[in-house]
Amino acid sequence: MSKGRPRPAGGRLARGLPALASVVGAVLLWEIYVRLSGISPLVLPAPSRVIEQMGVNRALLWENTLPTLSATLTGFAFSVSIAFALSVALDFLPKLRRALFPIFVVSQTLPLVAIAPLAVLWFGFGLTPKILLVALVTFFPMLVALVDGYESTDPEIETLMRSMGASRWKVFRAARFPSAMPYFFAGLRISITYAVVAAIFSEYVGARAGLGIVILNAKNSFRPDLMLAAVVVSSTLTLVLFGVSALLQRALLRWREAGQTR
């Protein structure tokens, strides 16, 4: 998954085959169960019906995917920028780190269920509460990834650079920052999946549009088939964002694959 090395496409397909087979198998079992048991589609719709609903409501789903995507990406970009700026400050000022870290840890203990309605109450139905909630959920993992990443720097590289007369800022730029990049991307891949969930949940408690709203409306009109259709769309969105961050990592950290390929 993450440790991708360039392989022939056939090899990758063969590696993905067991996963694909288990997914297809599970969906088939679900379909067979629904057909044999005659359970009402109001309780458990068959996968075929969910897929059919995705087709019928594709305009609705598409229109509502875009707001979710923009809330996710805006909130996440905001979160990553703040986390990065702060991680640099914390790296240079250990005292600040001791002062602020407990607050960040506490921020992670706040239940989203309680904070999301409050954010809507305070900031309205626009983009702001969504950005804040996505940031609340993803900020801390990104910050920890960066701070730990800086700490992972080989001490001998730092000693070497200081022996060359490098300033602290130069050591940071040339040694500590690049050392943190693998950690940064690991954090990115995990956080981006949280970000989608946080965006959908914040829509769910109050928004004009978005996948969260589709899910809410479908729930209120007893349409589990449409709910599941929206879930499939949101999962696909998450997987795509996950894949993009993995590709980004591979493109930017090509040195990590050096020496493995031969």
């Binding site: 080989d154 001998e156 590289i157 000693t159 070497l160 040339a174 040694a175 690049p178 990049m181 950290l253 040195w255 990590r256 050096a258």
Partner: peptide, 8 residues
């Protein structure tokens, strides 16, 4: 140890 930077 050589302390080469693996990313350079």
């Amino acid at each position: 140890r050589d302390a080469l930077m693996p990313w350079r």
